[in-house]
Write a protein that binds this DNA or RNA. Structure first.
Lengths: 345, 345
DNA sequence: GGCAGTGATTGAAAGGTTTCACTCACGGGG
DNA sequence: CCCCGTGAGTGAAACCTTTCAATCACTGCC
């Protein structure tokens, strides 16, 4: 039994060392690694044993340099703290696993500079495909990466034109079904809560809301907008205070929040101030994060098919990387309403 | 202006191409990349221009193969869906950034096979350091990686012996301060909620709870244990039902949950069944995830210094990778109680 | 007994970068 | 005027693996 501990500083064993130890040529060791069926059983076992004894670890850089192909897919996440993206990544992970690839993640934390740094790194690493939920989907830096030969798929965002594959959810429809659900429940004064209004997601959800409202023939002014600077819990709390401050005659009986975080904040404000949910105020959220169902009053929410989103994105990237006949596609998924206590009346 | 779009299939530009285009030697291009100060300004500009024109992207595999050193740190996360780990990763990220490294993540999703696959990949990629929150901290596969020369730091877990650097939080102390807080509030019948009991974290928190209880000289039987099979929301709900079913004389007036998810489930059950929090039942959680403060009744929770945990882990890995005099350390952080409504009486 | 076919193994080239010892030209000091 | 030091740039070797054409040793068949 030879030593299998690589002391600090000592160069780790290479195929050459393994070949020498096993008394075979270098090519044979490579065959054991890549086409074990071409090697006779006794030699293979001898080589495998030598590898174990020497603590051989294949050098991926050298492999990739020579073979020209990497075995990883990378996802630059917009905000790793948002459970939504975690589920998206899960979907990617399973698609990658199926294709024999590994998925690695980096978090941009909404900072364009970090996003750029991560994109550059992965590009240099020659990953098979680059999945990204960009800070700004129109950013020319995405074009730069694609132009230099790395397949890029835009996730949960869309981009004008069709120079990229992208995967997203129909947020206009999402806004529509949220409002239609509340109309079904008999509400005729509804607040849309969210912002900033120039955020693509918020804008689309609002557009869908207005369309549903118009279709129902209700007075335009009764769909009010409570704009928030962000989409977090604090914003929801604060919106709750503003709504509660309205005179009863003009106060909405239901609120549609542009995401679940905001809805949770609104719910917290309500419960803390004796506003009954759903009796006094019905609430619909968006995203259906895990905590929506776990809230004090389980939240009705618009669910996006997160896992499928990720899976589709990864599959597109793999196709773009391997299929010469690949054509860019913009996949749009359909959201779905999950009804829970917060609108059960 | 030359073309800077690499058509599919065309080999991308190499240093050699850049050198030719700029009319300099290969070594000079490398100098521009790695030691720009050794190159005269005019030549440097000529080379940079050639790079831009050709859309040159440095091949990281080749760089790493030759230079022998990688520029990345990797973290194999136990459960990317748990916001706790996200914050840990944030801390690592900032330490990495400071050291000029990139942090990449992989999710094991609690599956030992995936963990092993990720470890193997990163090992082959010769990452500078490998951070891991393992499914099983005692697993010999961790030793194998370390023995083959990659620095390994165990995160949020501890391991017997001191063959590894590790970073964790004192969960015994965490359990103690949770119970002490409830004792301060005058509770004398308390339920410990969590499980499975062989999970290291759960065990330690329970040990600390019992110690605090014993120190207070209270009757042993009045610290009851409501064991759950997991630490999720569902488990908390179900524990809530069990507690509510107890005769009033034996029913605890407070619960300490082994994590926030379970506490949220318990809270949800309480609110849904007319149990007032904290009047009828005070609740203390653990982890202080973002949603603890956002709950209907904001949760008192034991906070772990998550970001610092990650930062320390990354720093240890970097030290082990670069400092020949490195010695393994087991860093233990101190948790801290964050008091909120759920125990305010 | 020779030959074709087959399966196992070999050896050298190639892949893109960094490194380092070296050359070259130039200016200043003795 | 010569020599030396200096700054700029060069060229070949090295890093480790994969690939592929070529070699070798057999087996079974005519």
């Amino acid at each position: 039994m030879a030593l299998n501990h690589a002391p600090r500083g000592s160069r780790s064993a290479s195929v050459k060392d393994v070949a020498a130890a096993a008394g075979v040529s270098l090519g044979t060791v490579s065959n054991v690694l890549n086409r074990p069926d071409r090697v006779s059983t006794p030699t293979r076992e001898r080589v495998e044993r030598a590898m174990a004894d020497l603590g051989f670890v294949r050098n991926e850089s050298a492999r990739q340099l020579r073979a020209g192909t990497s075995r990883t897919l990378a996802y630059v996440v917009l905000d790793a703290g948002n459970p939504f993206f975690t589920d998206v990544a899960d979907g990617m992970d399973s698609a990658a696993e199926q294709a024999g690839l590994s998925l690695v993640l980096c978090n941009s934390g909404q900072r364009a500079d970090r996003e750029a740094a991560h994109l550059a790194l992965f590009q240099q690493q020659r990953v098979q495909g680059l999945l990204v939920t960009p800070v700004d989907p129109e950013s020319p830096s995405l074009d730069a990466v694609r132009d230099r030969g790395t397949p890029v798929v835009i996730v949960d965002r869309t981009r004008t034109g069709s120079a990229f594959c992208s995967v997203a959810v129909d947020d206009v429809l999402g806004g529509r079904i949220a409002i239609e659900h509340l109309l079904d429940r008999g509400h005729t004064r509804i607040a849309f809560v969210g912002g900033p209004p120039d955020l693509g997601q918020v804008r689309d959800r609002l557009v869908g809301s207005r369309a549903a409202w118009a279709d129902a023939g209700l007075p335009e002014g009764d769909l009010t907008e409570t704009l928030t600077p962000t989409l977090d819990v604090e914003a929801g709390r604060e919106a709750g205070a503003r709504i509660a401050g309205l005179p009863k005659s003009r106060r909405p009986t239901a609120a549609f929040c542009a995401n679940d975080m905001t809805a949770l904040g609104l719910l917290q404000h309500a419960i803390g101030n004796g506003v009954r949910v759903p009796e006094d105020l019905a609430i619909v959220g968006y995203d259906d994060i895990q905590f929506a169902g776990a809230a004090a009053v389980p939240l009705t929410s618009v669910r996006q098919p997160r896992t499928e989103l990720g899976r589709a994105a990864a599959e597109l990237a793999i196709d773009e990387a391997t299929n010469p006949a690949h054509e860019h596609q913009q996949v749009i998924f359909t959201p779905e309403l999950v009804a829970r206590e917060s609108t059960r009346h």
